[in-house]
Design a protein around this nucleic acid. Structure first.
Length: 168
DNA sequence: AGACTAACGTAATCAATGT
DNA sequence: ACATTGATTACGTTAGTCT
């Protein structure tokens, strides 16, 4: 039983974006920047994206993963209690964030419909929605993350339902 | 087969914007 | 002041690459 197949597939195949393979040159450049700043702002990330020919969202994820890697290595490596940088937040003036994306009511309506059908859209679906709305796919991914966090599956036999009772 | 790591998830929080 | 919601963080998990 349970031949080659997994007992259950939490995620349909092809739901993730294709994993990209970084060249040694790209990794080198990223590591170099990481040394200078663990928290690059949108301007730096966009510049790196242009120079390395990597989507900005992938740069952002690389820095996220890299911070975790370094912290993990710092800890388990040895009884290092000081010297290396503890999770010191940006000591330099923090670089600017991405400008808040404004999502129009009609765009929200499109995303909302998709959300009701599937709270975990595949990369193909997210890209489709990006075309429909004209919004960048990474913004759509974040939109779904925020939506899931703030609108838990209400079809659960939970509390007597106190959500938006619509006053008036 | 196991190490490494990009992609992705949640939870908490920061922060812009509108009322 | 406060509610809403987009953006970012830490950290754990999933799954593709490489040895």
């Amino acid at each position: 039983m349970a031949p080659t197949g997994s007992p259950n597939s939490p995620l349909p195949p092809g739901s993730r974006r294709r994993r990209l393979v970084l060249t040694p040159a790209q990794k080198g450049a990223l590591h170099a920047w990481f040394q200078h700043n663990l928290y690059p702002g949108i301007a730096t990330r966009e510049r790196l994206a242009r120079e390395l020919h990597i989507p900005e969202s992938r740069i952002q994820v690389w820095f996220q993963n890299q911070r975790t890697r370094q912290l993990r290595q710092s800890r388990s490596g040895s009884g290092n209690s000081q010297g290396e940088g503890p999770p010191r937040r940006h000591q330099q003036p923090p670089e600017g964030r991405r400008k808040r994306t404004s999502i129009s009511p009609s765009e929200t309506s499109i995303l909302l419909q998709a959300f009701e059908k599937n709270r975990f859209p595949s990369i193909a679906t997210r890209e489709h929605l990006a075309r429909l709305t004209g919004l960048p796919e990474p913004r759509i991914q974040v939109w779904f993350q925020n939506r899931r966090a703030r609108h838990p599956d209400q079809s659960r036999s939970g509390p007597a339902n106190a959500w938006v009772a619509n006053p008036e």
